[in-house]
């Protein structure tokens, strides 16, 4: 049900280690806020666009990711033109588009498992201090992925049962049974894990 946004490929962006890509993204994120020149930001936007295109993403998948952002950008653009003039509007919009494009390129070209591995390495110092238990984080992550489809099925069953009784979609009537089922399932799973002695 939740397919990763990653697109399999073997271009150079795919082969670059995930840690480097994330570090470059953070540096670019800070750097782009220091650039106030519209041509510099236009160049950054073109680079970001080229990187997204180089991942081999389809137009439909790309549109689904930026669709929500387009309306926010339109609103911000209109606002900036009215209050700050065309040039500031162009600077703000190009900076946001470049940043989002770069981040999207990283997401499209990096496996989820590689990003998790980077997270694990970043958490290592905290684990040595005893603040984080990597085993429990991994268990929680695996459980979440495992239970999204199941909770989704519960949602549909509750919806169908209520529709059969002629009830319209109502958040309270939906949420109380859904949360109780989730709690019940959590108790069963916890008992099963403890019984296995892990």
């Amino acid at each position: 049900m939740i397919e990763p946004l990653y697109i399999p490929g073997d271009r150079w962006l795919h082969r670059l280690p995930a840690g480097y890509k994330l570090a470059a993204l953070v540096i670019a994120g800070v750097g782009l806020f220091l650039v106030q020149n519209v041509w510099g930001l236009l160049a950054a936007f073109i680079v970001a666009g080229a990187l997204v295109w180089s991942t081999g993403v389809g137009a439909a998948a790309c549109w689904r990711q930026i669709r929500g952002l387009v309306w926010v950008l339109v609103a911000i653009g209109v606002f900036a033109v009215v209050f700050q003039g065309w040039l500031s509007a162009a600077i703000v919009l190009l900076r946001i588009a470049a940043l989002v494009g770069l981040a999207l390129a990283v997401t499209l070209s990096t496996r989820s498992s590689d990003l998790i591995a980077v997270c694990e390495r970043a958490l290592m110092p905290f684990e040595r201090l005893g603040w984080v238990n990597a085993g429990k984080v991994a268990l929680a992550l695996a459980l979440t992925l495992r239970f999204v489809p199941e909770i989704w099925r519960h949602y549909q069953e509750i919806r169908e049962a209520q529709a059969a009784r002629g009830l319209a979609r109502h958040p309270v009537a939906l949420l109380v049974p859904l949360v109780v089922r989730t709690l019940k399932r959590a108790q069963q799973v916890a008992q099963a894990i403890d019984a296995r002695g892990e």
Binding site: Q65, L99, V100, L104, T107
Partner: peptide, 9 residues
């Protein structure tokens, strides 16, 4: 999803 949303407005 993805990092783009975090870097957006």
């Amino acid at each position: 999803g993805g990092l783009g949303v975090f870097f957006g407005p």
